[in-house]
Design a protein around this nucleic acid. Sequence first.
DNA 1: TGTACATCAGTGAACGCGCGTTCACTGATGTAC
DNA 2: TGTACATCAGTGAACGCGCGTTCACTGATGTAC
Lengths: 236, 236
Amino acid sequence: MGTPGTARARARAEITAAVKEAARAQLAQVGAPALSVRAVARELGMASSAVYRYFASRDELLTALIVDAYDAVGAAAEDGARAGGDDPGGRWLAACRAVRIWAVDHPHEFSLLYGSPVPGYRAPADTIGPAARVPLVLAAAVADAARLGLLHPPTGALGLGSGPRLVTPEVLEAVGIPAGDDRLVERALGMWVALIGTISFELFGHFENVVSDRAGYFELAMAGAAGAVGLEIPVP
Amino acid sequence: MGTPGTARARARAEITAAVKEAARAQLAQVGAPALSVRAVARELGMASSAVYRYFASRDELLTALIVDAYDAVGAAAEDGARAGGDDPGGRWLAACRAVRIWAVDHPHEFSLLYGSPVPGYRAPADTIGPAARVPLVLAAAVADAARLGLLHPPTGALGLGSGPRLVTPEVLEAVGIPAGDDRLVERALGMWVALIGTISFELFGHFENVVSDRAGYFELAMAGAAGAVGLEIPVP
DNA sequence: TGTACATCAGTGAACGCGCGTTCACTGATGTAC
DNA sequence: TGTACATCAGTGAACGCGCGTTCACTGATGTAC
C-alpha cells in the first residue's frame, strides 16, 4: 500500500487502525469469543453500523486481529533472532525468548493465535503466511546450524531414521533444513511445539501451584528442546 | 455417594447425568464459550428454568463438565499405563497414547481443559485434583524408572543441575520423583508439556499443511520427550 | 395402612439485556469538465 | 477557479434473535405420626 493521498484515504487508514485498536482492547477484557462489534463501536463513540464501513463482518474484524497478531509475534521473533548474534543456537534462543516476552505482554492475542479455535470461525488463507513467520525463524536457525555442521548427532532411543516422511513436501521445501535420514525436520518441529506449548501452559494457568519460577523453567524447557535436535545454545 | 435410595434420588441422578450429556453434545457443536443453559434445556425438552434445579448457574454446569473431562482423560491415562506392562517406559508411552486417543475422540472436551480459558470463568478448587491425574500418571512412570535405576543420565548442553528449584514444594512431594541435583522433576514436567502441546497443535489446526502423518509424528515427539529425561521406551 | 404436611421437580411467563446486520437517509469529501 | 455529479462516512432506527436468571405456581413424591 502506497502513501494514502487524499484526506479521505488518510482518515480511512487512521480509523481502521483505531477500530482494530479498540477491538484489541475488547479482546483483552472479554476474550475473543465475546468480542462484539457493538462494544467496539461504543468504545469509539460511533454508531455500531459505522464499523461496517471498515470491516464487512465480525469475522473479518477477527481475521484482521489474527493477522496483526501473527505479524507482531513473527516480527518479535525475527527481531530477537537478529539481535541474537552470529551463533545459530544463540539466534534460536533469542527468538524463543522474544516470543515468550511478546506472549506474556499480549496474553489475549497469544490465546487468539494458539488457544482453542473460536467456534464458528474459519481462518481464511490470508493467515497462513503470517502464521508461518515464527516457525520459519526457528527453522532458519536450525538450517544454519546444520549447514555449518554445528548440530550434534541425535542421542537417545530413537531408531527413527527410517520410514516415510511425517511432514508435508511444502514444509520440507520451505524450511531449508537438509532432509537427511535422521528426521531432522521432524525433530525441529518439536522445538516449535515446545516453545508454544510451554508458553501456553504458563498463560493458560497449568503452571499454577506447579512451577514457581516460570522464566527459569522456560529456559530449562528450551534447553531441552534444543538438545533434542542437537543444537548447542549459549549457557546463561 | 452411596446408592440412591428413593425414586426421587434416582431420578435426580439420572437427570443430572442427562443434563451433562446434553451439555457435552452442545459443547461439541458450538464450543464452550457459546454453551447455553437454554439450549441444553431445549435439547432435553424441558423448561430452561428446570435446569436450575440441578445446577445453580451456567458456571456450575461448566465446572461439572470440566471435572468430568479431567476425570475421563485421567482414567484413560491410568488405564493405558496399567495396560502398558511392567516396564516404566512402556507404561509411560501407553499412557501418552491413551491420552491422545481420548483427545482425538473428544476434541471439544480436550479444548475445554487445555485450550484458552473461557473468559469470565474462574476454575474452582474442585478441579485441581482431577486435573492432576494425567501428570501424576506420567510422573509415576518416571519415578518408577528412577527407583529401578533405569534412567539414562541427562545428555546435551544443560549445565542446569544447580540453582534454586523451579517447581513448588507441593509438586516435589506429590510426584515421588527423587529430587536430585539433575533437575529430574523439572525435566519430567517437560514430558507433560510435550504431550499436551503436541496434541493441542494437532487438534487446534497448527499441523494443517505441515504434518502429514499425525500419529507418526506423535510417536516421534513422545520419543523425543522421553529422551529428554533419559527414559527408555519400547521401539514399535 | 392411612392421613397431614413438607419437600421437591418442573412450568411458563417475565425482566432486562446484548448481539450482528440491514437500510434509508444526511452531509461531507472527491472528481471531471 | 467554479460548478455538477458521484462517492463515501456516519447516523439512528429497526429486525429478529438468544441469553441467564428469577418467581409464583402446580402437582407429584417422600416422611412422620
